[in-house]
């Protein structure tokens, strides 16, 4: 298994795919840094300044372009799909799968090693990008991170990896299911476009309006509508991850639900403790881990039962 793992890593770092991903890492880190650099000066809050490096964005650019959003909606899905979409079917198409499987290796070693290698690459990429921001950010703002900030960032990194693993698992599932590399790529991209983008911005709000109309304008109707929308949005893995990253990176976010102005008046504007933030993000992370496990599990089972012959 180690042999295949090593080969997958070597393949990635010498391939065009690897270079593209590395360039993207630099581009995204630079973008996030730039946004933070411009935005952080206008802040009046003095707590968790370091974390804000990752979340602030300049007012001029749309809020979509802050680091967690870019990571959730674009970067991780892209990398996950890039790493997984041709894992199995390209080997099948090239005729290398039957050669490898006729060697004395367990069949699941092939898919395990590929999944593991992809996760390692993904972790390296995510860590590199965060370290770049942290390092340069430290130079720019000159405020060292507190220990809680470091822990929060680390947990955020872990959640990024879990989220990326979901996309790898999904792309890999399509690569097992479809014989043609093009169809697995297109299906993965379609899934991303729909659940990662359209669903969040168009489908879920529209559905919520249809299911819980706000026509009568009562407070209860508005609350129902919001909660319905929230419920529907959480079907999307991207939205789940976005919510959990918000909680982790913005300690001031106290709840993911709805608060009336009356309730808000009684709230002390205090950041949540790390444990409480984790508690808020925990269900989201659990679901992401579950989804990853389901995707990989299905690919595993299907792959184990598949016929080897290429034609």
């Amino acid at each position: 298994m180690f042999t295949i793992f090593r080969k997958e890593l070597a393949d990635f770092f010498t391939s065009i795919r690897g270079i593209v991903v590395l360039i993207l890492v630099f581009a995204i880190s630079a973008l996030a840094l730039h946004a933070a650099y411009a935005g952080i000066r206008g802040e009046t809050e003095t707590e968790f300044v370091f974390l804000r490096l990752f979340t602030t964005s300049e007012q001029a650019i749309p809020a979509l372009l802050n680091f967690p959003t870019v990571i959730a909606l674009f970067f991780m899905p892209f990398i996950g799909i890039a790493l997984g979409f041709d894992a199995i079917n390209s080997e099948r198409a090239r005729g290398t799968l039957s050669r490898v499987l006729s060697q004395p290796v367990f069949r699941d070693n092939v898919i395990n090693a590929k999944f593991l290698a992809s996760i390692v690459i993904l972790s390296l990429v995510a860590a590199a990008s965060m370290l770049l921001i942290a390092g340069y950010g430290l130079r720019i703002i000159g405020v060292p991170p507190s220990s809680e900030e470091v822990i929060r960032l680390f947990i955020y990194l872990v959640s990024i990896i879990v989220y990326g693993a979901f996309w790898i698992g999904l792309a890999m599932l399509f690569s097992v299911l479809f014989r043609w590399v093009g169809s697995s790529l297109l299906t993965s991209l379609a899934f991303w476009l729909f659940f990662g983008l359209f669903y969040i911005f168009m489908v879920a709000p529209a559905l919520a309006n249809a299911l819980a109309p706000t026509a009568d304008g009562t407070t209860q109707a508005l609350i129902n509508n919001y909660e319905m929308q929230q419920l529907l949005l959480r079907i999307s893995p991207s939205y789940l991850f976005l919510e959990s990253s918000t909680v982790l990176l913005l300690p001031l976010v106290r709840t993911l639900g709805i608060i009336t102005i009356g309730e808000a008046a009684y709230m002390i504007p205090n950041p949540l403790s790390l444990g409480q933030s984790l508690l808020l993000a925990w269900p989201h992370l659990t679901i992401l881990i579950g989804l990853t496990a389901v995707c990989f599990g299905v690919s595993y089972v299907v792959f184990m039962r598949q016929e080897v012959r290429a034609t």
Binding site: D11, R94, G95, T96, S98, R99, P104, V105, A310, T311
Partner: peptide, 20 residues
């Protein structure tokens, strides 16, 4: 199968190598 694969070599009909 593993014991068999240790002793047996196989040349598939549609043979493929890692081209790179």
């Amino acid at each position: 199968p593993l014991k068999v694969k240790r002793l047996a070599g196989y040349l598939p009909e549609r043979l493929g190598f890692y081209e790179n």
